[in-house]
Simulated assay, not measured.
Amino acid sequence: MAFLDPVTLSGRLVRLEPLTPDHADAVRDGNVGELWYTNAPTPDGVASDIAAKLEQAGRGALLPFATRRLADDRIIGVTTYLNPLPAVPAVEIGSTWNAASARRTGTNTESKLLLLRHAFEAWGCRRVAFRATWFNHESRRAIERLGAVFEGRIRNDRVTRDGTVTDTAQYAITDDAWPAVERHLTHLLRTHA
């Protein structure tokens, strides 16, 4: 399978399916787009956010997914492979946002497990990165809970939608850490989801 080729990834709680314009009306709860420190779209901006992701995907710059909760067949969010480095190989997982109703249900944990497994086992990645706005403490805790290692604070490299310049927290999981991280995430899903 070629790097960033569209794929569907399925688990027990969610299915990650290639993002399409048909997913635009699916996520309406939680208003994550109102948080100043994220670039998640407002409900009215979901369609244009999807269009922008699909345009970038067409150029090979990213691979976006809709997250479908299997229990009720609802689309509950979006997550993306981005910043691919096929020569390394390495990739970042980000541009993730989830409906409020999906939080703390195990769906995001399983989504990340599916994405990490595909990156490390299908693509042979040496590292998978995660980045969050410095002030997005909820996302930073979620990344740390996955088992990603904090690599540093990148100063003044991000502009939020309201024009605020802020910092980024950089994390990564490497291929040598992957077996332990996979075991950890599998355990979390089995015992807490």
Rank of each mutant, 00 (worst) to 15 (best):
L115F: 05
K112D: 02
N98H: 14
A66W: 03
A66G: 15
P86S: 10
S95V: 04
R117T: 15
T109W: 03
S95A: 13
R117E: 10
T96E: 08
E121A: 14
A87E: 12
V88E: 09
Y81T: 02
S101I: 05
D72M: 09
R68W: 07
A90I: 05
N98I: 07
A102Y: 06
A102V: 12
T105S: 15
S95D: 09
R117I: 00
A102P: 12
D73A: 15
T109I: 09
P86T: 10
L82R: 07
A87F: 13
A87T: 09
N83S: 13
W97E: 01
T107L: 10
N83T: 07
T96G: 05
K112A: 04
F120P: 01
A90G: 07
P89H: 04
R117M: 00
H118P: 04
R117D: 15
W97I: 00
L115I: 06
I93H: 01
V78G: 02
A66Q: 10
L70V: 07
A66K: 01
D72Q: 11
T107Q: 10
T79R: 13
I75L: 11
R117L: 02
R117H: 07
T105I: 08
K112G: 13
G77W: 02
A100Q: 15
K112C: 05
S101M: 05
N98M: 14
L85W: 03
Y81F: 14
D72C: 03
R103W: 14
L113W: 04
I75K: 03
S101L: 13
L116N: 01
L113Y: 10
V91H: 01
L70H: 08
N108C: 04
N98E: 06
S111E: 02
L116G: 04
V88I: 13
I93V: 15
R104N: 15
P89S: 12
I76S: 00
P84C: 11
P84D: 10
V91R: 01
E92N: 05
L116S: 06
I75H: 08
T79E: 08
L113Q: 02
G77D: 04
V88G: 03
L82M: 12
N108M: 12
W97T: 01
R74I: 02
P89E: 11
I93P: 00
G106W: 05
A99I: 03
I75G: 11
Y81S: 02
R74V: 05
A71S: 15
T109C: 05
A90R: 14
T67I: 15
P86Y: 05
I75W: 02
A90C: 12
D72V: 04
L116P: 00
T79I: 09
R103F: 08
L116H: 01
